[in-house]
Design a protein around this nucleic acid. Structure first.
Lengths: 365, 365
DNA sequence: CTGTTAGCGCATTCAG
DNA sequence: CTGAATGCGCTAACAG
C-alpha cells in the first residue's frame, strides 16, 4: 500500500543532491545535462516514483497538453461513425502524449470558448457542424486553435477533415444507374436537420440533384427521420405514389424502415427494388439482405483530426489542412449478387479525395 | 475578435476595487461577502469575461474536478453497450460540473495509477474487468478513489455498477425452457476472453451451468468469437453434431454467424430453432428475424458509475455501493411471435436487482 | 553545464 | 465581514 502522497520535484532535487531546475531540465530536455547528474536524477525519480504534477505544469507552462472533443448531443446513441471518430481521436491523442477531454453538454459557442480559455484544454475538435455554425464562428473570433470533423460552408482558413458525403451519394447513384435504375429516391437526413442547416444533409441533397441530372435519372428527394417507424411511413407512401421508383439511397439508418416497408409491400430486394446506404456500417453485414453501402474510414478520420490539431498546437503554421476523405462502395445483396471481391477489411486505409488549398475554389459540380 | 488573453482574478479585484481574496470568496461562497462587494465583483467578472483558470485552481486546491474514464482496448468497435456506458458517464459528469478525461491506451495498472497521482484527475472509472484484475488491485493499493463498471471476483470494499449477466442468462434460458426447448447451446464469449478471466464470461458460464441443471435442460457451453465468419463455423458444427439442440443463447454478436448458419442449413427461425441474445441492442430490431434478447439500461449504468465516483470525491464515506443492474427480456420474432406488449422505449429506467452490503454474502446459486 | 529565483492564477490562512 | 500574505509544483529566465 502506497498511500503516500506523490513526490514533488523539490524532493527529487534534494534526494539527488541537485538543483530543482536540473530536475526540470532532465525531464524536459530543454537544456543539456551531464550524464552523471541525469543518472542521479533518474534514480531519484525511480526510487520515489515521481510523477510530474499536471496542473502545476500547466500553470507554469501555460499549456495543458490536453485537447477537448465536443460531441453534439447525448442522443449519441445512433451514430457508430461518430463513435469511430471519437475512438480514432482518442487513439491519436494518447499516441501523441496528450489527454482528451470529452464533452457532451449541448455545447454552445460560449461553453466551448469558455473551456478553452479556462486553460483546461489547449485546443478543440468540433463535430457535427452546420453550414453556418455559431460554434465555429465563435472559435474563429476567439483566436483559439481548433479542428473540425465535418466542415462549414465557408472553409476559409479552416482546418478540417470530413467524409466526402457528396462523393458517396454520387458513387451510390452511379452504381444504381449502372444496374439500370431510372428512378431513384434519396432518403436524406430528417427535415429538422435540413432546416437547421446540417451541412452533410445539404451536401447530400445537392450532390443528388447534380448527379441525377448528369445521369439523366429521375431523382426523388425525400427528407426522412432515421428511426424505423417514421422511415417505414415515408417509404410506404413513396412506394404507393411512385411505382416507377425501383431503388433508393439512404443517408443513414432509414434503411430499416425502408426494408420493412418493402417486405410488407411484397417487394423483394434486390429483384424488385435496390437499396444502398451512404453509411451502413456496422449493420450492413448483419442485415438480410446484406446492405450495399459506402464504408468510411471514420477511425482514421478521427485520428487525423486529432493529429492536425496537435500539430497546430505544437507549432505547425502551414496553410490550412482541409481533408475530404473518400469511402468505398461495397456491393452486397441489397443491390444484387455480390461480386467476387471481398469487402475491405475492418480498418480501411485512408483515401484522400480532395485536399484543397484555401485559395482554390471548391469544385462547382 | 477577442484575441486578448483571459483575465485573471487579480485584474478582477483591481477592476472591482476589492481584495483578491474577496473575489475568490465571491466565487466559492466559502465565506460571507456583503452584497455591494459581491455586486462589484460580479460586474467586473462580467465585463472582463473572466474565467477561472482550471490548472491554477487545481494546483492551489489540490483537486482537478476531473475524472478519468478508462476504456479497455481500441477494439472498441464492436460494443455499443460500452459506448452507452461512456455516454452516460459523460452526461453525469457534465451535470455535476466535472470534466471527463477519456483514455484508451492499453491502460495498465501503472498508467492508471500514474494518471491519478499526476493530479490530472481526481478519480477513475475502470471498465471491462477480469475476475482478478491487476488494475483494480493497483488502484486498491494506491488508495485512489475509483469506481468500476463491471466487477471483480473479490468485491470487498469495491464500488461498482455491473449489468447482471447471470440474471440475463437465467431469464433467457427460462424463456426458452418455457417454449419447450430441452437442449440449448450457449454461445459464450470467445475462448481467449474466458482464458483471460473476463468476469462477465465466467459469470455467464456459471449461470448457464446452474440454470440448465435447475431446469433439467441439457446445456451446451460453447465459447465463440463474435465475428460472423468464426461464429458461422462454430454454429455449423454445432448444428451438425447436436441435432437435438433447438435453441441458443448468445452473449454477444455471435448471433450473426449463427443466423447465417441456420439459414444455410435450411432451418427456419423460430420454427426450427430459437435464438436469444443476452445483449442485442441496437441490432435486435433491425435483424430479420428481429431478435429476442435482454435490453440493458447501459446509459443509466454509466451515469450511475460516474455519480458514485463523484459522490465519493465530494466526501461520501458511506459503505461501498455495489449495484447489479437488471435488464428486460424483450421477446421478438427469433423466439416466436412477439406478444402484445410493446418493447420498452429507448432509454430504460434503472432496475436494481441487487445492492449488497459488503458484509452480506453474495447469493450462491 | 548548473544553481538561484521569480512568477503562473488561485485557495486559504492569518490579521484586522 | 475584508485585506494582505503565503504557497501549491513546476517552468523559464537570469546568473554564474
Amino acid at each position: 500500500m502506497d498511500h503516500k502522497k506523490p513526490a514533488t520535484m523539490a524532493e527529487i532535487a534534494t534526494r539527488a543532491g541537485v538543483a530543482l531546475s536540473t530536475v526540470s531540465y532532465v525531464l524536459s530536455g530543454k537544456r543539456p545535462v551531464s550524464p552523471e547528474m541525469r543518472e542521479r536524477v533518474m534514480a531519484a525519480i525511480e526510487e520515489l516514483d515521481y510523477r510530474p504534477h499536471g496542473p502545476a505544469r500547466a500553470l507554469a507552462s501555460g499549456t495543458s497538453h490536453t485537447i477537448a472533443l465536443f460531441l453534439p448531443s447525448p442522443q449519441w446513441d445512433l451514430v457508430p461513425v461518430q463513435q469511430m471518430f471519437v475512438a480514432g481521436a482518442t487513439q491519436a491523442t494518447s499516441a501523441r502524449d496528450y489527454a482528451l477531454l470529452l464533452s457532451t453538454l449541448p455545447a454552445g459557442p460560449a461553453e466551448i470558448v469558455g473551456l478553452l480559455s479556462s486553460g483546461r484544454a489547449d485546443g478543440a475538435i468540433v463535430m457535427e457542424t452546420l453550414a453556418e455554425d455559431a460554434r465555429i464562428d465563435a472559435l474563429r473570433r476567439s483566436g483559439q486553435t481548433f479542428t473540425v470533423i465535418g466542415r462549414t460552408a465557408d472553409t476559409t482558413g479552416l482546418d478540417f477533415v470530413d467524409l466526402d458525403y457528396g462523393e458517396g451519394v454520387r458513387k451510390s447513384l452511379a452504381h444504381l444507374a449502372g444496374l439500370g435504375h431510372r428512378t431513384v429516391a434519396l432518403f436524406n437526413f430528417p427535415p429538422d436537420q435540413l432546416a437547421e442547416g446540417y451541412y452533410s444533409a445539404l451536401i447530400a441533397r445537392q450532390a443528388f440533384a447534380e448527379a441525377t441530372a448528369e445521369l439523366g435519372i429521375r431523382g426523388i428527394d425525400l427528407p426522412c427521420p432515421h428511426p424505423a417507424p417514421e422511415a417505414f411511413g415515408v417509404a410506404t407512401s413513396l412506394l404507393r405514389s411512385e411505382p416507377e421508383c425501383t431503388a433508393a439511397i439512404t443517408t443513414g439508418w432509414q434503411f430499416t424502415g425502408l426494408l420493412t416497408a418493402l417486405r410488407e409491400a411484397g417487394m423483394h430486394v434486390p429483384d424488385d427494388f435496390s437499396v444502398v446506404s451512404v453509411i451502413a456500417a456496422p449493420f450492413a453485414e448483419m442485415l438480410t439482405p446484406a446492405l450495399t453501402g459506402i464504408e468510411w474510414p471514420a477511425f482514421e478520420a478521427g485520428r487525423l483530426a486529432a493529429e492536425m490539431l496537435i500539430d497546430r498546437l505544437t507549432g505547425d503554421t502551414e496553410p490550412p489542412r482541409q481533408l475530404l476523405v473518400g469511402g468505398d462502395l461495397v456491393v452486397r445483396d441489397s443491390t444484387g449478387p455480390a461480386p467476387e471481391t471481398t469487402p475491405p477489411k475492418s480498418r480501411m486505409k485512408l483515401q484522400l479525395v480532395y485536399d484543397p488549398r484555401p485559395e482554390r475554389k471548391e469544385r462547382t459540380h
